[in-house]
Amino acid sequence: MDRNPETDVYSTEERSDRETTDATDTTARADESETVPGTEPTAESGSAAAELEYGYDSDTDANSGPESDSDSNPSPVSTADTGQNPTPDPETVTFGWEGVRTGFLTCLPVALGVGGYGIAFGVLASQAGLSVAEAALMSATVVAGASQIVAIELWADPIPIAAVLVTTFAINLRYSLMGAALQPWFKHLSPAKVYGSLFVMADENWALTMRNLRSGAGYGAFLLGSGFAVWLFWVGATVIGAVAGGVVGDPTEYGFDFILAAVFLALAAELWEGKSSLVPWTVALAVAIVAAELVPGRWYILLGGLAAAAVEVIRYDQ
């Protein structure tokens, strides 16, 4: 987890020298690049791709990216490869056991915090009249904390089915946007891998996955591994909370409630790309804050994200 940017960058350069002579994958990728609208080739392309190639035998680099020393824009869109240029597509992402493992281990400390919330959810669920098995079933199949807690708050006898389902949909619609944001890295993965991984996507592990993919580590299975860590702690903690009933106190006492904000702050620090981020981020911030005041639920996340994307689409010219 702790990374040393200097060492990483050095070793990455060393690798890219070796990798440029390996043309095996390059030719295959050159074909694919036709379907990808090219944007500015970035200086990091070669080294980022080299990092991918070595992803399997190095876990120390899992979270570090070659662009950590640079302010330039590491566009998630593929570089325009003519076929003459041996630079491999930096977005060719692998999907394997190493990615699952890295995702799982990276997410463990965060999943521990998720567990704090799982206990709170289990307590609430048992107070609302759900059995331990029913609470565990909800955590295991829905895997979306905020919507589960709100659903439990709505829970009554008889169950207000329509209200529960509509609220669940509204709270979770932000995941559509989060999933869509992964597409630049997931475009070459099979539907089964993509949709299977998305089942365990939660806010926390989405953030960690974005971070890992942007670093160029190329672990397509990172979302699955980190999601499994979240799932395990979420379901386990739900059971503990539901069994313990009212014994356990408030997660804010241990600062667990701040973990989500902290993960997102850390991610924001890394996503900042200088001037080009200023306009979309300001739009997202303003729209989200206003929408949070005016619109119930979690629509503000969706509205903030969409407004920023819309402004960028309008501003786009090349």
Binding site: P37, T39, S75, P76, V77, R174, L177, M178, A180, A181, Q183, P184, F186, K187, P191, V194, D203, A207, M210, R214, L260, A261, F264, L265, L267, A268, L271, W272, E273, S277, P280, W281, V283, A284, L285, V287, A288, I289, A292, Y300, I301, L302, L303, G304, G305, A307, A308, A309, A310, E312, V313, Y316, Q318
Partner: peptide
């Protein structure tokens, strides 16, 4: 987004989503 071919213009919008979502979560929080 997997089913439909996206224009460069739309991809540019998609590219700002991660940062924008992060900020939209953080701001009100």
């Amino acid at each position: 987004v997997r089913r439909f071919e996206l224009s460069e213009r739309l991809e540019a919008g998609l590219n700002v989503l991660p940062g924008a979502i992060v900020i939209a979560v953080l701001g009100p929080e």
